[in-house]
Amino acid sequence: MSTPFPERDPCPDRILDDLGGAFAMGAVGGSVFHFAKGTYNSPNGARLAGGMQALRMNAPRIGGAFAVWGGLFSVFNCTAVFVRQKEDPWNSVIAGAATHGSLNLRRGLGAAARSAVFGGCLLALIEGVGIVLNNVVDESARPQPPVDDPNLAAATATATGGGGFQASNDFQ
C-alpha cells in the first residue's frame, strides 16, 4: 500500500511544517472571524477600528492554539510512525486520540480519556471519509475501455454465451 501523503517531508521536518501551517491557518481564520465580530460589535463610527482591534487582540491567540494542536498532533503522528514502522491512516487516529487526551489532562484523567476517545473517533471519521473519497476519485480517473472496441465486443459475446442482441437489416 502506498503512503497517503507521498509528497510529505520525513518525520522530524514534518513537525515544524505542520506547526507553522497550523499557526497560519489559525491566524488567518481567527483574523477573519474576529475582524467580522469586532466590526459587528463596534459602534457606528468606529466599526473599522473596532474590527482591527479585535483582530490584533485575538488572531495571534487563535493561531497559537492551532499551532499547539498541530504540533502535538504531528509529534504523536511521527511517534506512531516510528513505533509501528508503517505509514497508514491508523497513525492519524492514534495521534488524534493522544492529542485530544493530552490537551485535556489538566481536567483530570476521566476528562482526558473521554476527550481521547472523541479525538480518536473524529480522526477515524476524517480518515474514513478520505479513504472513500480517494477510492471514488481513483474509480473515476481509471480509463474506461472504448465502446467500439472489437475485442470488447468479442469478450462480451463470449462472456454472455454468444447470445446477445443481434441487429437485423429488415429496414432497408
Rank of each mutant, 00 (worst) to 15 (best):
A141V: 05
R84D: 03
L109N: 06
W90S: 11
I126S: 05
R142L: 09
L105H: 05
N151Q: 14
S115F: 06
A141R: 12
S102R: 00
D138A: 15
A97E: 04
D88R: 05
R142I: 00
S115N: 10
A113W: 02
L122K: 11
E139A: 14
F82C: 12
F118G: 04
A155F: 11
A159V: 08
A112V: 02
P146Y: 09
L105S: 04
V83H: 03
S92V: 09
N151S: 10
P150I: 09
V136H: 07
N104V: 04
G128Q: 01
I126V: 15
P146R: 13
L122C: 03
Q144A: 12
L133G: 00
S115M: 06
V129D: 04
C78I: 10
Q85Y: 00
A95L: 03
R107Y: 09
F82K: 15
G120K: 02
F82P: 00
V132F: 10
N135H: 13
T156Y: 15
L152E: 08
L109V: 09
V83S: 02
P89H: 10
V147Y: 12
T79G: 15
V147R: 13
A113P: 01
I126A: 13
L109S: 10
G119T: 10
L125C: 08
R114M: 04
A116Q: 01
N104Q: 14
A153R: 15
L122A: 11
A154Q: 15
R107V: 01
L122S: 08
L109G: 03
L123N: 00
N151W: 07
N134F: 12
G96W: 05
G101A: 13
C78R: 11
S92N: 15
R106W: 04
P145E: 12
I94Y: 10
G108T: 07
A157S: 14
V136S: 10
V137Y: 12
T99P: 03
Q144N: 02
A95Y: 06
A97Y: 02
P145R: 14
P145N: 07
A153H: 15
F82G: 09
G161C: 06
R142M: 09
K86A: 06
E87I: 06
V117C: 07
V137H: 09
L152C: 04
A116T: 01
S92D: 15
L125M: 12
S102H: 02
R114A: 05
A159E: 05
V132E: 04
D149T: 02
T158E: 12
V137D: 10
G108W: 10
V137A: 15
A98E: 03
I126M: 01
A153N: 11
E87W: 11
A111C: 08
A80R: 05
T79C: 14
N91W: 06
R106L: 07
A97I: 00
P145V: 08
A159C: 06
D148R: 02
N91P: 01
W90T: 11
G161L: 11
N135R: 14
F118A: 15
V81N: 13
F118P: 01
L123M: 13
N135D: 14
S115H: 09
A113D: 01
P89Q: 07
N134D: 14
V132R: 08
R107A: 05
A155L: 14
A80T: 04
T158C: 00
A95R: 00
T99S: 01
I131V: 05
D88Q: 02
D149K: 01
Q144V: 12
V117D: 03
T156P: 01
P146K: 14
N135L: 14
V129N: 02
T158M: 11
